[in-house]
Simulated assay, not measured.
Amino acid sequence: MSTSIRKVVLVTYPDDFTQEEAKGLVNSADRKILRVFTQKYLNRSKYGMGAGKAEEISEFVKESGAEQVIVDEHLTSRQMYNLEKLVGVQAIDRERLILDIFRSRATTTEAKLQIELAEIKYEIPRVREGAKLTTGSERPGKGGSGEYVVDVKFRELKRRMSFIYEKLDDARKKRELYHHQREKDHLPVVSLVGYTSSGKTTLFNLLTEEHKITSSHLFTTLSTATRAFPLGGITTSASATATNNVLLTDTVGFISRLPTYMIDAFKSTLEESLTANVVLLLIDASEDMQSIRIKYMTCMQILEELKVDKSKILLIFTKYDKVGSEDAISQIADSLGVHERIAISAKTGYGMHKMKSSIGQRLNEMRTPQPQPPSSSTTTTGRSATTSHGQDK
């Protein structure tokens, strides 16, 4: 097996967090890093990086026998073409690397369709530019019907994209039917979200007694899984069943600098977070503060893009067994400006009862009847007062 692992050169930014994440992505793609080169800027016009660094990488590739250069940033077709011409081996960017990992991890039909959609969105802007680069002109020859080959390719991609959208829309409609049925059965939904490798699947397995694969590699989970788990003796409603079951959903992990088109491609999966009654945002508390802060901000930004109601979000600090101190958790929470939070360990069971109690409390609050709105004159006054208060801030 080891002989099939591709040897690569990684080019990334100099800060520790970005380097570690880039290495994690490369390892998850089953590639062996021969050397890491760093650059403060990876948006230079010709190669992405500076010409001097590109020449240095070219020399190393020739000496080491590296088979691929991976640049931890978005590259245009022109930049990749120039870099490949210089180094003599294939060059790929961060987005292509993530798509390769996604493709290797996908198991369900829906996940495969979502990844294909993301790949098409990645490919479309590059079709015409790539044809121009390889032929030296904008019109690279004709197909069988007198059409230009690039136009045929472009139309094929568009047609395939429409087909995938139809299939994903069918999947979304089925999910909506399941959602309506859950509402009729009074089964609340709790969604697990968080950065990739934050411990979502480990917690999912513990609560549901499932055996989903867990790994230190990034993006182990790509397909959504939903199972029932009991909250125990915690009451969530007057009509609750004896077992007090709640549905728990495990979703794909988030990552920093994920392009919008990838989020869009996975929206049908991530929409489980939109319909959930409670969203558990998992943060690995055992990491350094810089990593925690970046991952927390990334997750909140993606949840905001998905228009998830912030009142549904409950912050869960995982891997407490590696931290071992509530004071340390409090310091992390204070640094993030977070007031309500729970520390847990899926390994030791620490904090599980408190987490379940908080879920039950959130569900009860959602079922509590809201007070009737005041009369129209009072409403106007109240709105004015609120606006004035906002301005004072």
Rank of each mutant, 00 (worst) to 15 (best):
F229W: 01
S239K: 15
Y261Q: 13
H186F: 11
A238H: 14
T243G: 01
L177K: 10
E156C: 13
K158Q: 15
T236R: 10
P259C: 06
A225G: 05
N244F: 01
Y261G: 04
A265C: 02
P188T: 15
P259A: 02
T260M: 08
T214H: 02
H186P: 07
V252N: 05
G194P: 02
T201E: 08
F219A: 02
T201A: 05
T236N: 11
F163K: 15
S256K: 07
D169I: 11
M161N: 12
M161H: 14
P259G: 02
S197I: 03
E210K: 14
Y165G: 05
L248H: 07
L281D: 04
S162M: 12
A276I: 11
E209Q: 12
N245E: 09
V189H: 10
N277W: 01
A225K: 11
T275F: 09
D185R: 08
L258V: 02
R182I: 01
T275L: 13
P188D: 07
V190Y: 03
E166M: 07
E176D: 14
R155S: 04
T208H: 00
T241Q: 01
V279K: 12
T275K: 12
F266T: 05
I164M: 06
Q181W: 06
S239P: 02
E176I: 11
Y261C: 06
Y178P: 04
A228F: 06
T221S: 05
R257Q: 12
V252S: 00
A240P: 00
